[in-house]
């Protein structure tokens, strides 16, 4: 091979990753080694994710109604309403968490005061609570023996209890989301360049403009990635709902009921696929949108 050839080959990279082309390069293991490194991960993903997911899709097709099952879940009022309710609640939780944690996260990064580290540590406490425990926390807060109930009972003589319905679920997912968003906001806020704000202010920008033009764009990546996790969890988790009440009509609960009680595997599978696709679609859309604003500016300038 001539040296010219090599240069050309190096410059215009083939679309295949180079370890598949089979040319060992200095500092990198041989293709065989790289393939070996990939093997365990590939096996896990293929055997326990790709094949099962494909089988689920096939199970729907082989069910009593075949592919029409997808049509049924969209036209059946109960399934569709549940889908919408899940979607709206998840979006609501995400937005609420982003706003609350955006303010608090920024505040915690910007200010130094006694107890700041303790507050930060406490806010991230539920980071690894499973859905069931989160549900139990909601019961502690707003259940029949909850704090809120006792306080309202003492103040107004009326026990405020809202743990055992969709409001309780909303609170539960908020509880789950806060630590994640707080951490993401604080990480992004620490990376914000204070000189950017000073620059905006030196040009005469009032506070709200600094927030809109400098701080929010800077926090955006953190907000989007943590918001995505909150949204996906609220869409798909069912531990919290399971703990609160079995008759909350969110999609994961419906799937569970169809599968275990009605043994309606085809519908459960179709609903799972619909839920998965919807979650994935929303996440991808948000990510694309965010990617665009990050690369092409917020538009509407000079």
């Amino acid at each position: 091979m001539s040296s010219l050839h090599q240069i050309k080959g190096g410059r215009s990279r083939p679309s295949l990753p180079s370890f598949m082309v089979g040319q060992a390069r200095p500092g990198v293991g041989s293709p065989a080694i790289l393939a070996l490194l990939l093997t365990p991960g590939l096996i896990i993903v293929a055997a326990f994710f790709l094949i099962p997911m494909a089988l689920v899709a096939m199970r729907v097709a082989n069910g009593p109604d075949g592919f029409a099952t997808y049509f049924i879940i969209l036209t059946n009022g109960r399934y569709f309403a549940s889908l919408m309710q899940t979607l709206v609640m998840s979006a609501g939780v995400t937005v609420t968490a982003l706003v609350l944690c955006g303010i608090c996260g920024l505040f915690l990064v910007r200010n130094r005061f006694a107890g700041r580290n303790v507050i930060t540590a406490l806010l991230t406490l539920p980071l690894s609570f499973p859905g069931t425990v989160v549900g139990f926390m909601v019961i502690m807060l707003a259940g029949r023996q909850g704090v809120i109930g006792s306080v309202t009972d003492a103040l107004f003589g009326d026990k405020l209890v809202f743990a055992y319905n969709i409001a309780g679920l909303f609170i539960g997912y908020l509880y789950f989301s806060i630590p994640r968003v707080i951490l993401a906001v604080m990480a992004s806020a620490e990376k914000l360049d204070p000189q950017l704000e000073e620059a905006a202010r030196s040009l005469g920008a009032p506070t709200w403009r600094v927030i809109k033009d400098v701080i929010l764009p800077g926090l955006m990546p953190g907000l989007i990635s943590s918001g995505a996790i909150c949204f996906a969890t609220a869409m798909g988790a069912f531990g919290t709902a399971f703990t609160l009440a079995t008759d909350i009509d969110v999609l994961p609960m419906v799937i569970y009921t169809e599968f275990t009680r009605n043994a309606n595997v085809a519908v459960a599978a179709a609903l799972s696929i619909a839920l998965g696709l919807l979650t994935w679609a929303v996440l991808t859309a948000v990510r694309c949108f965010a990617g665009n604003t990050a690369t092409s500016g917020t538009g509407g300038g000079a």
Partner: peptide, 12 residues
């Protein structure tokens, strides 16, 4: 003001 790190707005 002109800053050492330029402080240009990356989103514009």
């Amino acid at each position: 003001m002109v800053f050492q790190s330029y402080a240009l707005f990356p989103n514009m």
